[in-house]
């Protein structure tokens, strides 16, 4: 069962990730790059996450690792102060 934070991440990913086969079937730990997240789409995803959570990713979190899975995105968001209600 996904946490509320991960549900919100999925919503963003659905709109901004441009993933060929959608997001619903992907587990939280699935490799998003292997699922077709391009470097161009990573930037769109980053901007959409910043908009959704009203945050700004610091430079050190702008690597591919940060956006490599729903889990990884959640970890990065929590690291920069986003609250996960279920936690």
């Amino acid at each position: 069962m996904s946490s509320p934070l991960k549900v919100r991440i999925r919503t963003v990913l659905k709109n901004a990730g441009s993933l060929q086969n959608g997001v619903d079937a992907l587990p939280d730990d699935a490799d998003l790059h292997a699922a077709g997240l391009t470097s161009h789409a990573t930037v769109s995803l980053m901007l959409a996450l910043e908009e959704m959570f009203d945050i700004e990713f610091p430079d050190r979190l702008l690597g591919r690792l940060t956006f490599s899975s729903i889990d990884a995105i959640a970890r990065a968001l929590i690291e920069i102060g986003v609250q996960d209600e279920a936690a």
């Binding site: 993933l19 060929q20 790059h33 292997a34 699922a35 077709g36 997240l37 391009t38 470097s39």
Partner: peptide, 10 residues
Amino acid sequence: RRTAQSPPSD
């Protein structure tokens, strides 16, 4: 591509 099922960017 990594496999025949992989998207173009993988």
